[in-house]
């Protein structure tokens, strides 16, 4: 309910709206700029002479005859076989999310229902594990993966990503299951269910909102990961993020930066769609651990 006093503009309010506006421009402009520029040639996108070139597309018209060109996308997706990296990412992300959630729901449920002291210690250990920089863990695997000949393949990466994802998944689902009343599964057990049957028939049907929210973050972790994928995947199995990185290495010399630009825009598109559809779940997930304290 906005009263007259609340809606009056004070200098403080103007300053704070100004800050918000400034932030929104800083947050969004780089994406617009890169998206727009990905349909130009390199001389326009990275134009030392005059940045208006990138808007008018002076060189793009000179080189291709039209102000927009999809040359960069064709180059990245067909010539550099970016679709293949996308397929790898699809496989890695799908299995990471499914396995993470399966392990996480079982563990999170157990932690939420157990009052024993060791449940607390497991959560504390998970918090410390969550803080480990990923590269320190990777330096622990590398030698052994080479020794056992499992380096470079997708399954290894999937298992590692699942494990790295567990601490976060566990915390989130633990706090989610805590909010489901104990009475539900306990009354099922009074009626003769075992613990697992109670979980299967009573808890599983009501857990989907929490699982979907957690799943979104597992998706983001697997999709956005660079440290693990760049160290553990061979060149034939690269996912999109390390592929973009190796693009930068190989294409800069050939003046094909635009391929990388197109790849970057392609990699951001799925995230854009994700935010569009799941904004509410993402926001609630971000604050779940925090607001409930």
């Amino acid at each position: 309910m906005a009263t007259a006093a609340q809606s009056r503009l004070t200098p403080l309010k103007i300053a704070s709206f100004g800050l918000v506006l400034l932030w929104l421009i800083i947050a969004a402009f780089p994406f617009f700029w890169t998206f727009w520029g990905s349909f130009k040639v390199q001389a326009d996108f990275l134009s030392k002479a005059d940045w208006m070139n990138a808007i008018r597309g002076t060189n793009t018209i000179a080189q291709t005859g039209s102000a927009f060109t999809t040359e960069a996308y064709r180059g990245a997706w067909i010539d550099e076989a970016f679709w293949f990296n996308f397929k790898n990412t699809g496989i890695v992300v799908f299995f990471t999310v499914v396995i993470s959630l399966t392990f996480g729901t079982l563990g999170g449920y157990a932690l939420a229902r157990s009052g024993f002291r060791y449940a607390f210690w497991i959560l504390m250990a998970a918090l410390v594990f969550r803080a480990m920089p990923h590269i320190t863990l990777v330096s622990g695997y590398l030698l052994w993966f080479f020794e056992w000949n499992v380096w470079g393949i997708l399954p290894t990466t999937i298992i590692v990503l699942v494990a790295i994802n567990q601490p976060f998944t566990l915390w989130m689902l633990h706090s989610f299951f805590k909010n489901i009343p104990k009475d539900m599964d306990e009354s099922a057990m009074v009626d003769g269910c075992t613990r697992f049957q109670a979980f299967r028939h009573v808890i599983v049907p009501v857990m989907w909102p929490g699982v979907i929210t957690t799943g979104l973050f597992s998706f983001l972790l697997a999709y956005n990961d660079f440290t693990v994928t760049v160290m553990l995947l061979s060149e034939q199995n690269e996912t999109i993020i390390p592929a973009i990185n190796s693009f930068m290495g190989t294409t800069q010399v050939e003046g094909k930066v635009m391929y990388a630009v197109a790849a970057v825009v392609s990699a951001t598109a799925p995230l854009f769609v994700l935010i569009l559809f799941f904004q509410r779940q993402i926001v609630s997930g971000l604050t779940a651990g925090a607001v409930k304290g």
């Binding site: 399966t102 392990f103 996480g104 079982l106 563990g107 449920y109 157990a110 932690l111 157990s114 024993f116 449940a119 497991i122 250990a125 998970a126 594990f129 480990m132 320190t136 863990l137 330096s139 622990g140 695997y141 030698l143 052994w144 298992i159 590692v160 699942v162 494990a163 790295i164 567990q166 601490p167 998944t169 566990l170 613990r195 697992f196 979980f199």
Partner: peptide
Amino acid sequence: TFFWFILPTLSAMILFIALPIVS
């Protein structure tokens, strides 16, 4: 029961987070 529920996630964390630290 707790043990069986927590087993998958705990073994993932021990094998791929705790052991690498030792390694």
